[in-house]
Amino acid sequence: MKRPKTPLKLELPLICFLGFFWMAIWQDFTLGTFLIGAIYATIIVRVFYLPPLRGSGRLNLWWGLVFTLRFLVKMIAASFQVSWIAVAVGPKVKNSIISVQLRSHDDLIVTLTGHALALVPGSLVLDVDRTTATLYLHALDVDSDEDAERIRQDALRTEALIIMTCGNRSDVAVVKAEKRLGRMSGFSKTERDAPFIHRGGGPSEADRDAERAAGRTPERTDIAASADSPERTTIEEVEH
């Protein structure tokens, strides 16, 4: 099979990482070891083909730092929480499966968000619907609509930080528009369950203008409402 050739520039971060890896396993942090590692890495990357990781071309280290600190704090807090649930609540624990529709349809952002959510104890990514960029989270010890909504908002906030760190420009514009308008994307469970007409009347004309300026047409409601359409069948195998 003929494979598309990846330009070396796209593989450079991976090669550098593998070079560092080589230094680490030899415990010899010198330039020579790094070079040998990088040569081996180049050969490996060429022989064992992987689809290249196409980033958005932007990287904001400040938001990356904010994301990392928030992640560490949440991880430590949630580790103790899950340990406490295991010891104190035990067999009586109630769980929920919560769907979170993400803003971004970029595979990298969806993957990173799923990873970040799965690493924080108490939530587990059960399934991903790639066409609608929806994550299905299994959350430990959630037994009310408010708690479920809190988990959903939290997941969207995690995604917002990841988008601010390395998302593409249109996603960043969506996050900024949301911040300006003071609302979060997507629908909560109660909003989704309500008939379409009663959904708060949709955004006002000013909101529409702002969203259009942010590079996203206000078709979100239509997309969510037409989720019943037959082309959204990526998780059809769930039944089998």
């Binding site: 624990v93 769980n95 929920s96 919560i98 299905y136 019943d228 998780i235 059809e236 039944e239």
Partner: peptide, 19 residues
Amino acid sequence: DLLTHDELASAVERISRDI
């Protein structure tokens, strides 16, 4: 019986109805 919400089940049901 331990699940209070199962939004994946509703998605599965919605999709399998359309197939």
